[in-house]
Amino acid sequence: MSTHRAHLKDEGTKLQVVSAGAIAGLVSRFVIAPLDVVKIRLQLQPHSLSDPLAPLREAPAYFGTVVTLKHILRHEGITGLWKGNVPAELMYVCYAAVQFTTYRSMTLFLRTALPTRLPDSAESFIAGATSGAAATGVTYPLDLLRTRFAAQGRHRIYKSLRSAIWDIKTDEGWKGFFRGLTPALGQIIPFMGIFFTTYEGLRVQLAGFNMPWGGEDATAGIVGSVIAKTAVFPLDLVRKRIQVQGPTRSKYVYNNIPVYTTALRGIWMIARTEGIRGLYRGLPISLIKAAPASAVTLWTYERSLKMVMNLDSSREALM
């Protein structure tokens, strides 16, 4: 195994890893927030792409990323592209911190608890899937809140983050915060497994190219994201639609989103009524979003970790 790879995965204390992960999540979320809002709007459209003569009751059908972007800017202003950004920022910071911490801990556990070392690819897959599932479960209520705010359009359903939490708790109970958790976990486990396996393998192969500004980390992150996102995208789409169900379902931009009792039934219904293409609605913008998001996250994480470690070393030297 590459000594560079082993050193990178072992370096940093837990506090340093948490700090670097939080910084990476914060920066990444702010950069890709507009793309995320556009993606969510496209995913929530419950109409057939082949039937332009069946408009929705209040919101026009969006046929592509550019049209969606223009519609939001025209009717909601530039701030509309950052709807749901507060819960999303909290989610990304917490998610990145939990993800990188769990990934590091699971990797060290697999190396010390088993009688024999697992292959690198298996080790990365298990650590990646575990870290993704843990981060998803911890931050899921924030993910649901982010989706509902992004789906509001011109009509405000929730006046603030605090009122949204109160209304959901009152009208739907605590389980309301976890609508769609099953497809989320079903999505994130293979996604993170595939992503980290691809990322770790590719970044080692690119290490000898000496790309400027840590380019090998960004390139590996982009490729890993594209492959993993495409593989699990239908579950992500169903998750988004389940998240906006409940007593406020008819008040969002798209007020006729069908009710899905399970994720599998949702996939079947979408394929039957909207075609196979319907399962991949918003995939192009999702891939465009995933690439810079992962690249920025991983690039910022590596740089932030080194910065935090250097600061701690300087502080210790002065003591």
Rank of each mutant, 00 (worst) to 15 (best):
A6V: 06
K9E: 09
T13L: 13
L15N: 08
V17W: 02
I23Q: 07
A24E: 10
L26S: 09
L26V: 04
V27Q: 05
S28D: 10
I32D: 00
P34R: 04
V38L: 14
I40D: 05
L42Y: 05
P46V: 12
S48W: 01
S48T: 01
S50K: 02
D51S: 13
L56A: 09
L56D: 07
A61C: 07
G64Q: 09
V66Q: 08
H75Q: 13
G84D: 05
N85M: 12
V86I: 14
A88R: 04
M91G: 09
V93Y: 00
A96G: 15
V98K: 01
R104S: 14
S105M: 13
M106A: 15
F109Y: 11
T116F: 11
P119N: 05
S121C: 06
I126E: 00
S131T: 03
G132S: 13
A133M: 14
A134K: 00
A135R: 06
T136M: 15
T139N: 05
P141R: 10
Q152L: 11
R154K: 15
R154H: 12
R154I: 11
L161H: 03
I168K: 04
I168C: 06
K175F: 11
L181R: 00
A184K: 08
A184P: 05
L185Y: 06
G186S: 08
P190K: 03
Y199P: 01
G201T: 03
V204Y: 04
Q205Y: 12
A207H: 13
G208C: 07
W213M: 12
G215M: 09
E216G: 01
A218G: 00
I222N: 03
V223G: 00
V223T: 09
R241S: 10
G246I: 04
P247S: 12
Y254V: 08
N255P: 02
N256Q: 14
P258S: 12
G266E: 07
G266Q: 07
M269L: 15
A271P: 02
E274R: 14
G275H: 10
S286K: 04
I288K: 02
I288F: 14
A291I: 03
S294D: 09
A295M: 07
W299C: 10
W299H: 10
S304E: 08
M309K: 08
S314W: 09
R315A: 15
E316H: 08
M319V: 03
